[in-house]
């Protein structure tokens, strides 16, 4: 910090080699990641997208021809797809909202020092370590009135009129995977937000407390603005992941009963691996990709605004 003038005039007289090195520097840091992403994700992605315009059926050796927009014409008339789209909104919205709200509360609770915090933190973060496949089966068992306790408890509390399996009830079935997903996903938000909370300089709080700011005021004017960039990026990624996340639904309800829990991602899975129609599955995936892209653009713009405001 001692001689800013000298440094600035030095920068103006940099030779060409030095200027090139400066321009290339960020690319050296980013190159390994970019190479990997292009080779293992982008190239296969483009290959996969090309399937959307071809007739690719795994068991049919005569398939593979270019068929243009045929899949999309079928898709436009596919009622099951529209139902899945509606279910996706409900599944994603409810899961993200509950995970975020409960995760933020947990992070705030854990941000205060208290005896046994390390242990409590280890225990509440544990669900994230459970393989989703296992988490799904485990929750399916908990909801099963024959061997699981939950239906009986819910009936006793008056939430259910009788101890039935909510996974078999067309009106309630979606809550099963949503609850399993919330259970599994709270630690994600809690960990990210807690780490962001820990990075807020403590003296800002002290200064605010001296100035007479109450807890709520400190939360709104210090904590939230500091967390905002982290919140925006985690909600964005989480929404996209959950919209694409079919494991729990496939394991717990397989899209049933009566397609009430079929989301677009599980519909794609069904088309690809049950009916082995990779062409049609790719076409649906392309539509889902475009929708999620539009959503992400919105969040990125909001995040950029938030950063520039600071």
């Amino acid at each position: 910090m001692s001689h800013p003038e000298a440094v600035r005039s030095g920068a103006a007289r940099k030779p060409a080699m030095r200027r090139f090195a400066d321009a290339a520097e960020p690319w050296f840091y980013a190159a390994p990641v970019l190479t990997l992403i292009v080779a293992v994700m982008l190239v296969p992605l483009l290959l996969g997208l090309s399937y959307a315009f071809r007739d690719i059926q795994l068991l049919n050796p005569f398939s593979g021809a270019f068929i243009g927009l045929e899949h999309f014409k079928t898709l436009a008339r596919d009622d099951a797809f529209y139902r899945a789209l509606k279910n996706t909104l409900w599944w994603t919205g409810a899961s993200v909202f509950l995970q975020f709200a409960l995760g933020l509360v947990l992070a705030l609770l854990l941000d205060k020092p208290f005896p046994g915090r390390g242990l409590a933190q280890a225990l509440v973060f544990l669900p994230w370590a459970v393989p989703t496949f296992l988490a799904g089966l485990n929750w399916a068992w908990l909801f099963n009135p024959v061997i699981g306790p939950l239906p009986h408890w819910m009936a006793a509390l008056g939430i259910l009129s009788a101890p039935d399996n909510i996974l078999a009830d067309p009106h309630l079935a979606m809550w099963g995977p949503i609850i399993a997903n919330v259970w599994w996903g709270i630690p994600f938000f809690a960990i990210t937000l807690l780490a962001a909370l820990q990075a807020i300089p403590r003296d800002i709080y002290e200064a605010a407390a001296i100035d007479g700011a109450g807890p709520l005021q400190r939360f709104l004017s210090i904590t939230l603005p500091f967390l905002a960039p982290t919140i925006a990026i985690t909600i964005l990624l989480r929404t996209v992941w959950i919209a694409n996340f079919a494991d729990l639904i496939i394991v717990m309800t397989n899209g049933g009963p009566a397609d009430r829990t079929q989301i677009v991602a599980s519909y794609i899975f069904t088309q690809a691996f049950r009916r082995l129609d990779f062409g049609y599955a790719s076409a649906i995936a392309l539509v889902l990709l475009v929708l999620l892209l539009a959503y992400s653009m919105l969040i990125v713009v909001i995040r950029q605004r938030l950063i520039e405001k600071d």
Binding site: A30, L34, I37, V38, M41, L42, V43, P44, L45, L47, G48, Y51, L236, L237, V240, W241, N244, A246, A265, I268, F269, A272, F273, F278, A281, S282, A285, L288, L289, L292, L293, S296, V300
Partner: peptide, 19 residues
């Protein structure tokens, strides 16, 4: 770069299996 990385998060990974 940011856009590239975001796009990779948006595609259902199921579709990458075959390629």
């Amino acid at each position: 770069i940011v856009a590239l990385m975001l796009i990779t998060q948006m595609f259902p990974l199921v579709m990458l299996v075959a390629p």
